[in-house]
Design a protein around this nucleic acid. Sequence first.
DNA 1: AGTGCCACCTGTGGGC
DNA 2: TGCCCACAGGTGGCAC
Length: 272
Amino acid sequence: MPELPEVETTRRGLAPHVEGRRITGVVLRRPDLRWPIPREVAELLPGQRIEQVRRRAKYLLLDTQAGSALLHLGMSGSLRVLPAATPVKAHDHVDIELDDGSRRVLRFTDPRRFGCLLWQPPGATHELLRDLGPEPLSDAFGGDYLFALSRGRKAPVKTFLMDQKIVVGVGNIYAAEALFEAGISPLRAAGKVSRDRYALLAAAVKRILAYAIERGGTTLRDYINPDGQPGYFELELSAYGRGGEPCPRCGRALKQAAIGQRATVWCPHCQK
DNA sequence: AGTGCCACCTGTGGGC
DNA sequence: TGCCCACAGGTGGCAC
């Protein structure tokens, strides 16, 4: 899936095509995503105008006066704006039809169905958004913040960094990249990383996420942005997916192992 | 409270 | 060519 840069790239690609448009209909072909799509989506969205497309963590929100559609792309989800006549393919679960004079639809596709489409009433905050940590690119996130929250934690720093209650948006790819850049072993207990090194890690997270957004996200297998274009960050990944290859810094073999059930790549020589 | 592990589901790529 | 297995960008929920 999409980590934060891919979701943000999706948001940016979508916004100009859907903001200000009125929804003329909602087609639910396969409502059994991670959770059932609630009835409000089909009952309240038609007739509404999409005022704004927002992102919080890896969630997207389509705001209307009646409430907000809350989307998560899971591991394999994508959103695209297409001509209404575009043939429907397998795993095209939802169409949100737009009246913009050119008959287009916002189509939600998700082969694995780990994603979701939920509903947030006006003024409410959905339960799933309630306990999320700060946005990594905001001033609320930084080295001192990580240092403070990590004291006493025995879990590996990589697991800690990927915990959305600590900070949102950092998934398996960017956690590996940020730890590589900061020179921190992903296996190190979160509570044993110094304040100075957390400053390096936070800076690496910010730099890498911002750069990945700028480059249109990372493409692995099937990620595409709403315009149907792949991201371009993959060729620039230093660690993720490069187990056994030479470390870009020291040339020794990168190691690969599972940490918290997720494949992790790092350089045992450069990352301590 | 923190941690580790499983589950959800489909597609793909590698090894045989 | 075909079969089988391992693995994939996430994260809620559970047992300890």
